[in-house]
Amino acid sequence: MKNFGFSLSKDRQIDFDKSDKRIMDFVKIEEPTFNICIACGTCTATCSAGNFTEMNLRKMITLIKRGEITGVRAELSKCMLCGKCSLACPRGVNTRNVIFKINQALEKYSL
């Protein structure tokens, strides 16, 4: 990385070489439909918790795939697992198990 002489603010880029892809690696094996998301946002649009909170499954899946996992635990703690998302998903992502598995990964890697 080039040094432009500024070091005051934190780097905003996703540093894909260093980001933490452990959750992604775990979930994509445990629940393969994690991979078939096309980020259409239907899950988030219908999400019961999303009405009240920052919970955004579509974004979370994307970020986990990039290794950006700060805040995942807090966001996921809002999920009621009601399953509306799985009933709405046009791709057939098994969203409830994706969430269940992300929780397991958080636990497994003490994240």
Binding site: F52, L76, S77, K78, M80, K84, I99, F100, N103, Q104
Partner: peptide, 25 residues
């Protein structure tokens, strides 16, 4: 291994009725 926090659910009662209909998600 989930660890939920539902503190964001704050009941807000504006009116009530003898019969409550809960449609379900």
């Amino acid at each position: 291994s989930g660890n939920n926090n539902f503190d964001y659910l704050i009941p807000k009662i504006e009116k009530t009725a003898p019969i409550i209909y809960f449609a379900g998600c």
